[in-house]
Design a protein around this nucleic acid. Sequence first.
DNA 1: CTGCACGAC
DNA 2: GTCGTGCAG
Length: 268
Amino acid sequence: MSKRTIYSIVAIVIVCGIYVFETYLNTKEQDAIISKGKIEKDLTNLFFLPTSTTGQIVHHDGYSLSYSEPHEQPEWVAYELKESQLVNTNFKRPYFEIDDAVKTGAAHWSNYKKSGYDRGHLCPAADREFNYDLYVETFLTSNISPQKHDFNSGVWNRLEQKIRYWAKRYDGVYVITGGVLKGNMKVIGDERVSVPNQFYKIVMDYNDGNPKALAFLMPHHNSAKPLYHFVVSIDSLENLTGIDFFSELDDVLENKLEASSSYKNWHF
DNA sequence: CTGCACGAC
DNA sequence: GTCGTGCAG
């Protein structure tokens, strides 16, 4: 074997080594991005975000929200739930923390203590179990409303489980949820957190080329009625809340989605 | 799954 | 205030 051949082989090995090493570094970097920021990246093009009536939209890695300072809770929380994100872990529940991203100051969890009301997640903790940081992130007080326990663990819990069922069946859905911050409401705690009299939830399936949306409006008390009993049109929710829900969508599609209160295309 | 209460530190 | 444990719908 000539010296020239040996030099060539050494050169090839070095080049290949560098290539493999760089590929390895890139892979590590991508893993880090996926584990911490994939959702955030997706949120940069959220086409389905509602308008804010309060002027304070906050983006977290796992969900976005519009905070109502007078009522010390979000007027809506929006997030995407993909089929691949439906996992069951057994994370220990952390303590609720004040959301520093809310510039007007989010409520303290002690407002709820011994109030008789649950700290009701709006983006459910169970929907962010695919990543521990995102799970913990749902335990911000900007993501909760006061809810009666029998409502939260009852009909509202049933609806949240149905959303997970649809996320699996339809390969991912968008979800918008919140309390209706209107009318006469009770308040709890030193910061006077409002207790909504109704809660709403909108679910959209965008994945099969024929988007469909469904809206629910529930009185703030438990019920044994079937979930479809609470279906309303998105238009009626907009009239009730003053929020414009799919303003970024094409008008024709927006009008079609929002006028309907039919649930015939949804499997219960 | 949805949560709270209580006692020890 | 934080943490572990127990209990309820």
